[in-house]
Amino acid sequence: MRIGVYPGTFDPITLGHIDIIKRGAQIVDKLVIGVTTNPSKSPMFSVEERLSMVRREVAALGSDIGVVDFDSLLMDFAEREGAKIIIRGLRAVADFEYEYQMAGMNQQLNDRIETVFLMADVCLQPIASRLVKEIARYGGAIDKFVTPAVAADVKSHLAAAH
């Protein structure tokens, strides 16, 4: 069985993430979405909230997709899950430079696990969770970038913060 992991903060999960999940699930027998906290980011949602959000959004995509949290090196997480593939989404050249460097470092840590890059759909390439949160904080509409349920989650979270 070919297992792949798709790691990220998913804060919040966007239509771009969902596109990569759907396409990534087609190239592996089982896809494990790893929800983590990046110390360099300030998450809007807790890990538990993000896990719940991602599970809800991928529930209809099939039983071959799992969602778990992790707080370790990506390569340790991938090995623990039995993965042979790490799936990463790319939006722009800036993403590629960062992801290329990370893939090289990961290969040095464990050369038995391959990194596969998937380009986001052209219409979804500009979407970034960071920008979605910024637009929402200033009262802008985010429904072009996230599902209706995620838009409601963000709106509810922001309302509770005030």
Rank of each mutant, 00 (worst) to 15 (best):
E79H: 08
I86L: 11
N106M: 08
Q26T: 07
Q101W: 13
I65N: 12
V47N: 07
D71L: 12
Q101P: 10
I86P: 08
T36Q: 06
R23S: 11
A103S: 15
N110A: 10
A60T: 08
S72T: 12
G8E: 02
G16Y: 01
I13C: 01
G82N: 08
I21K: 10
E99N: 03
I20A: 00
K22L: 09
I13P: 00
Q107Y: 09
Q101V: 15
I33Y: 02
P43Y: 00
F77Q: 07
L74S: 10
G4H: 04
L51A: 10
S42W: 07
R50W: 01
I20N: 01
K84M: 15
E48A: 12
F10E: 04
L31T: 07
S42Y: 04
P39G: 13
D69Y: 14
E48D: 15
E49W: 02
K30A: 10
A83D: 11
I20S: 02
I65E: 08
A83S: 10
G16M: 01
P7Y: 04
R88Y: 05
P7I: 04
M53L: 13
F10D: 00
A92W: 04
A25D: 04
G82V: 12
Q107N: 11
N38D: 12
G24F: 01
E97F: 05
Q107S: 11
V47D: 11
N106D: 03
E99F: 02
R112Q: 09
G4M: 03
E97M: 03
K41E: 02
R55Q: 14
G16R: 01
G8T: 05
F45R: 00
M1D: 10
A83K: 07
R2C: 06
S42L: 13
G24R: 07
Q101T: 15
M75K: 14
I65R: 06
M1R: 06
R88G: 09
E79D: 13
M53P: 00
A59H: 01
